[in-house]
Design a protein around this nucleic acid. Structure first.
Length: 510
RNA sequence: GGCCCAUUCGUCUAUCGGUUAGGACGCAAGAUUUUCAUUCUUGAAAGAGCAGUUCGACUCUGCUAUGGGCUACCA
């Protein structure tokens, strides 16, 4: 009964990968790694009308950025390929025929228009045991006519013939047993001749079986069709190797009702996708976590805790720790409202704790090929020291540049409000003396300058806050930022004095 | 409408019959600080309702309410 763990993430390339999909992928990945199993990426492109160019690449790039490794897939290859459903037509045909031959499925010719008409006149119409004998299908038509229509190229579908009156139980690792009556299930379309492709239901079961998937870990939206999937395994005679079911709770809107959607991101101002995306058809742009300035580790950590917990108070966890601690037992049954503020906090923590050098590199990479990126990339050691001073003050990578900017560019403007508060009549004279003082301190380090300057201020009975902030004004441009003496150490004596001089001559408190 | 799933602070959650119902985010207050942040301390804040089972229920059962999902020749 114990089989090697093989799980799959099976997105449909109909657009950018949704953050909820990312979480599903993550849980699959964590479970696979924890059990020394295999993570499969299968592209479910059975709806040819909804394919979006670039979506498949996006999925790969997003998972790669997040560090969700794939063992088998279109790019990685593997012994169970092809891993794209549109390339598995030959396989599906065999299994459709098997079901047809066994009498577990039938051919139906009802057109979409006919079905819609039927739905319009019969409330709650359902194509099932109670109605299928009134429809145009191989159950009601002579065999030779069915064959003739098929030979003529008439479009048809194959429907799963569900026998009513049975209780079907899905054993779910998160929810326990879920039982429904087969009577309420409809005869789902399994295959459509129009594009010679199966629907999700058939392709899914066939692929999971052939790929020896041990655990199907997917979103809760699939729970209602799971009983039908169980019946499908039965119809194929694969019940003994049916995978374990795991239906994950959904990610919900932060405020209103319903599951998290693309619109919510636009409306509430946070990304719903891992990476930026521009729709090739409409040109519509959606922002992503990467471009927003998130660290992939932070996104992973945040997402992992949305619907799961380690069973103790830990919150900040690395991928390895998550793999170690993950379990379905601690998965929540309840949909989780998406809390963007918590996500920000995670990112803040990760930026604060990041190694200084790595952070500097991440910052250069984030700013990219533009002017800022060029300025920052010139001296990585300098940037590393500057970044270290401000990293606890940023929620996003993008907030770092405004905070280290003064290390690279001397201020040309001075915050009016701060000037008004701190620039007194005697300030120019005091700062001029400060220049003289600074010229004589060796070495020009925080450790050496701090006691000397502070002592000098005390000796003269100057107002500490006024002097320090006036000085800060000349160096930073505003009364914000890290410890002054750390700043001037990094800036160096010449630059510090130059900025003091410029400030003294150009700042005037009107 | 039908079917299924769920229900602890505003949010994410711990508790797997006996707790002053714990933690985190956010919020508020205070401390620290030459500034702004950070940091630290403290505080407010929860078992949807009603029945049952039990010596005892947030925990088990039922009903109600509420929320969510599904109900396509989409996944």
């Amino acid at each position: 009964m114990e089989r090697p763990v093989r799980v799959r993430f099976a997105p449909s390339p109909t657009g950018p990968l949704h953050i909820g999909g990312v979480r599903t992928a993550l849980y699959n990945y964590l479970f696979a790694r924890q059990n020394g199993g295999t993570m499969i990426l299968r592209i479910e492109d059975t709806d040819s009308t909804r394919l979006v160019p670039g979506a498949e690449d996006y999925i790969n790039e997003a998972l790669n950025w997040l560090g969700i490794g794939i063992d088998e897939g279109v790019r990685q290859g593997g012994a169970y390929g092809p891993y794209k459903q549109s390339e598995r037509r030959d396989i599906y045909r065999v299994y459709v025929k098997q079901l047809l031959d066994a009498g577990r499925a039938y051919v139906a010719f009802d057109t979409p228009d006919e079905l819609n008409a039927r739905r319009a006149e019969v409330p709650n119409f359902q194509y099932d045991a109670s109605t299928r004998l009134q429809m145009r299908n191989s159950l009601t038509m002579p065999a030779d006519e069915v064959q003739r229509l098929i030979d003529e190229g008439t479009q048809y579908v194959v429907r799963f013939k569900i026998e009513p009156g049975r209780d079907v139980t899905v054993h779910d690792l998160i929810r326990g047993d879920v039982t429904v009556s087969s009577t309420i299930l409809d005869d789902k379309v399994l295959y459509k001749s129009a594009d010679d492709l199966p629907t999700y239901h058939l392709a899914n079961i066939v692929d999971d079986h052939l790929m020896e998937v041990s655990h199907v870990i997917r979103g809760e939206e699939w729970l209602p069709s799971a009983p039908m999937h169980v019946l499908l395994y039965e119809a194929f005679g694969w019940s003994d190797t049916m995978p374990q079911w795991v239906h994950l709770p959904l990610l919900l809107k932060p405020d209103g009702k319903g599951k998290l959607s693309k619109r919510d991101g636009d409306r509430l101002g946070f990304p719903v996708f891992p990476l930026d995306w521009t729709d090739p058809n409409t040109g519509e742009r959606s922002s992503g976590y990467r471009e927003k300035g998130y660290l992939p580790q932070a996104v992973i950590n945040f997402l992992a805790l949305l619907g799961w917990n380690p069973g103790d108070d830990r919150e900040l966890m690395s991928m390895d720790e998550l793999i170690e601690a993950f379990s379905f037992e601690h998965c929540s049954k309840k949909g989780a409202k998406f809390d963007f503020e918590k996500g920000k906090w995670f990112n803040h923590e990760y930026i604060s704790r990041m190694d200084d050098k790595e952070l500097a590199e991440a910052l250069v990479k984030y700013e990219g090929q533009n002017e800022v990126g060029e300025v920052l990339g010139q001296d990585l050691d300098y940037l590393t020291r500057a970044g270290a001073m401000v990293k606890t003050r940023a929620n996003f990578i993008g907030e770092l540049w405004p905070q280290v900017r003064f290390f690279f560019e001397a201020p040309t403007e001075y915050a009016e409000k701060d000037v008004r508060k701190r620039w007194k009549e005697d300030t120019p004279a005091i700062l001029t003396d400060l220049i003289t003082l600074l010229e004589g301190i060796e070495p020009f380090t925080a450790a050496a300058t701090e006691p000397v300057v502070l002592g000098w201020i005390a000796d003269h009975g100057y107002h500490l806050g006024n002097v320090m902030n006036a000085w800060r004004l000349t160096v930073v441009g505003e009364c914000k930022g890290p410890h002054m003496f750390d700043i001037i150490e990094l800036l160096g004596r010449d630059e510090t004095i130059a900025r003091l001089r410029r400030g003294i001559s150009s700042i005037h408190n009107a």
